[in-house]
Design a protein around this nucleic acid. Structure first.
Lengths: 225, 225
DNA sequence: CCAAAAGTGTTTGCTTTACACCCATGT
DNA sequence: ACATGGGTGTAAAGCAAACACTTTTGG
């Protein structure tokens, strides 16, 4: 039986679109490359896939070692194979996207290597490889996904207020939503519940804290926003 | 600059879920393997990806040479990487699905190799590798996709009647739909138009022929069926 | 007491659902 | 004429959009 990994196959890599939410803006982690190609240019974090690891494991390895992020939401996005996407040779990349909650985000903020930076999605520099295209695909996926799966909570703290959740939705969807209708639709979907606590210390009426009800929920719904 | 394709990478393949619609049933093309592993068992058609071809090109190559099918709808589905999905070694497969129109389907019916057969999706044999899982993912994608992109037409003839289109939708979605509401929603979506011809020769009132209006349409809609 | 932002409910209009009748053909 | 399946319209219900007032805090 032949050893298939000795065949002349394209090389296999993963690239990661890591989303975070901070200062009321959706952001992405970008890496400043120290080597050619695209030396000193910005790209998505990525790596080649080893023989002994799954795609998810390769992604976790990048997240852990390069970015200091553990146990965060991860999902396969799409496989990119444009012939000259990598000037070094034929590399096919299985892109993934990840979501970092505000808690994890601030926890590792200090430890981050200085060649890694958050960029708001509204202000992305020129990216190397085909990473602009990958990023756009990830944004599109996130936009679609947030309407039928409880994925927004991966970007917030465990406790969040309704206005915070709405801000996040508006950031991702790119348009504003009526407060009252938003609240009703989210509550009708039934995957958040009041914690009983309130967010105090603001200059106005305290907001109720909610959290994501992980147990008794339908894993799939449909929001019309 | 190193030659990346000499790295120890997992091998890269594609597997194809080819859908057809015949005898009022959604069907899939399966291949009877002549070699181990899964000798004499049924699997999806597939192949390793060469260094000089894109994923889509690899798929077209399979479709053309193994199945005699040209210029049909093709879309990337998902990349499967379970560690032991292939007993021969580490193979990662970028699954695709394809849609064969009734015209093409009958045109090549005779030329098909005798180790290739159509199976209605309601009656699929045990499949080798992880192909059962791939097939299920493809069905799910098709179900979702048919509701917001004009993809059903890829499975029918150029001209089709409203009842034919409805039968197809019911097959894919797995439930029945009210005739009058179906008709209205399809027409409201605005991507079909009357040809003026009628399907005659039945034992009852002739049905109007429609065709898919490829030009002046929004490529994206939403059907609530 | 004023400004700022959070919480709540109601009315209006549209979309979806459910459903019944007429029409064209072959036998 | 009758059986079969195709074409059309309408009334009722459910859902989404628009919108105004009250509440709680800090200054």
């Amino acid at each position: 039986m032949p050893a298939f990994h000795t065949y002349k196959n394209p090389a296999l890599a993963t690239d990661l679109v890591v989303f975070g939410y901070q200062d009321k803006a959706l952001s992405v982690l970008l890496l400043n490359r120290k080597e050619a190609p695209f030396k000193n240019g910005w790209t998505l974090p990525g790596a080649f896939v080893g023989l002994e690891e799954t795609l998810a494991e390769a992604c976790r390895r990048i997240l852990d070692t390069k970015l200091g992020l553990r146990s965060i939401y991860l999902e396969q996005l799409y496989t990119f194979d444009t012939p000259n996407r990598d000037p070094r040779g034929r590399v096919i990349s299985v892109a993934h996207f990840a979501l970092v909650s505000q808690g994890k985000l601030t926890a590792v903020a200090g430890k981050m290597a200085n060649d890694v930076r958050w960029f708001p999605v509204t202000d992305i520099p020129v990216l190397g490889f085909d990473h602009r295209q990958i990023l756009s695909a990830a944004q599109e996926r996130l936009r679609a996904k947030i309407l039928y799966q409880p994925v927004g909570f991966e970007l917030l703290d465990e406790n969040f207020t309704m206005p915070e959740l709405q801000d996040l939705y508006e950031c991702i969807l790119g348009h504003s939503i009526d407060r009252r209708n938003f609240r009703r639709k989210i509550l009708d979907a039934g995957f958040v519940e009041l914690t009983g606590e309130k967010k105090e210390g603001l200059q106005n009426r305290p907001a109720d804290y909610y959290n994501f009800n992980k147990k008794l929920l339908p894993q799939h719904f449909h929001l019309n926003l």
